[in-house]
Amino acid sequence: MIEVAGFSKSYGDTAAVTDLSFEVRPGEIVGLVGPNGAGKTSTLRAIAGILKPEAGTLRVAGHDVVRDAVAAKRELAYVPDTPHPFDLLTVTEHLRFAALAYRVEVDEARIEALLREMELFEKRDDLGSTLSRGMQQKLAIACAFLHAPKAVLLDEPLTGLDPRAIRDMRASIVARARAGAAVLLSSHLLELVERLCDRVLILHRGRRLAFGTLEEIRAAVAAEGSASLEEVFLAVTDPARQAPDAPSPDAKPS
């Protein structure tokens, strides 16, 4: 559902992402992890059709995001790391706007259900400018889920949420994946990624260091069977392992 092949992107002389390839299947949640500046946000933005790739192809639900951008965007939802709602739209109006933008019926019952799911119902008539950081995050995710996208891109979706909201949001993300969406989720919360994601893609300095299930990556780095994602991540991104002749821990996709 999300296919990335040979994607490269640079800013001036700095390479942000180099020759990155992976795919996210329908119903699957893939965790995108890496240190700051690893190229996670650039990758998500390129798939969302906001950044122009220098090389490679990116496809969403079979549509090329460069050549057939509008069709690709219609099938996906992207939630940035710090969403900014419209100051002068109420919470409900954000959802109505999303319904119009993605050409789905403006179904007030569905909007209400989403608002309740995201615990935003009490705030439905509040303007975007009055919402807290966590509420803004929930609103952006509610807008993203409204049109039942086939591909969901979430950049640090749980930042600013309280523990209960994190638990509920986790359930919401899993529910979308079970409904058939391909979910690509970037996060620094490795414990969350470990619990939530079917496969993990580790990026470092714009390059793919590892991609596969946690077991596959563990095996590739010769880690213990009980090693957590955090331990595996630290082992994979260890500077000693970054030497040019060091063996790649990349796991073959199952």
């Binding site: 059709g49 509008v70 069709a71 219609r74 969403p83 100051d87 954000h94």
Partner: peptide, 15 residues
Amino acid sequence: FSLAEVDFLFPGPFR
């Protein structure tokens, strides 16, 4: 554009 427009319109299905 405003930051909200960047977040909501750029990834949206708009020509």
